[in-house]
Design a protein around this nucleic acid. Structure first.
Lengths: 112, 112
DNA sequence: GAAGTATATGTCAAAAATGACATATTGTCA
DNA sequence: TGACAATATGTCATTTTTGACATATACTTC
């Protein structure tokens, strides 16, 4: 139970050394789902920085709030892939770009 | 108001001659979002048929119900991209495949 | 290190999505 | 045609997601 919470914390934040799956006891689908979410989250952050926007500004574009944008970029359990995609689109992500983001192999973060 | 209902009916089903956008009064993002949903919906149906499954069987795999699967394939407004993606993953869709589905240009249905 | 700005985290009421069920429609084949 | 299977549509109680707000933590620049 505590374990469940920790698991979500971890998986949501991308704190995994190797790939998400074998670190935690996840099914393939769950793992794929989370990795996808992580990719979208990173994609969003990248896109935002590329456009030199703050989370607050993105929030306006997306008609959401700064806190939710932060959660999106953190791939929080409380955000859906739906919202991530809508946000990416709102930032002007093209379809091919979206495809690339989703297809990309996922590299664990890196600052800046 | 009636108009809104009709609009949703239409957009949800993919009954558009050209592209979704100029037929209805949609913003670019809305249009892109809907087209994406349509692609995923078609992708799901394709995948299901490829695997020779009925909606009821897919429902089991996804832990949902036949009616919801039908709605997914119809790209109903009540289904999220989230659920579509989770279902595709449950049917064993690989990441590259997912990328292809999303990237594909969308061709309006065709029976069988 | 204070002041200012950006991002992160926690919480919650409202809104949207979900599974389930009933039922209607469509498709198939004898 | 009729009978049977598959898919579609409508509705609803429950669950999940959402925007918003408060507040905490992290970054900058002085």
């Amino acid at each position: 139970m505590m374990r469940e919470i920790k698991r979500q914390r971890l998986e949501a934040k991308g704190w995994k050394i190797g790939s998400t799956k074998e670190f935690l006891g996840l099914s393939d689908q769950e793992a794929e789902y989370i990795e996808l979410k992580l990719k979208l989250a990173e994609g969003l952050r990248a896109k935002r920085r590329q456009r030199r926007l703050g989370q607050t500004e993105v929030a306006k574009l997306v008609r959401s709030s700064q806190s939710r944008v932060a959660k999106m970029e953190a791939a929080d359990q409380s955000v859906s892939i739906d919202l991530l995609i809508r946000s990416l689109l709102a930032l002007g992500t093209s379809n091919p770009e979206l495809g690339r983001i989703i297809t990309r192999s996922h590299h664990p973060a890196g600052p800046r």
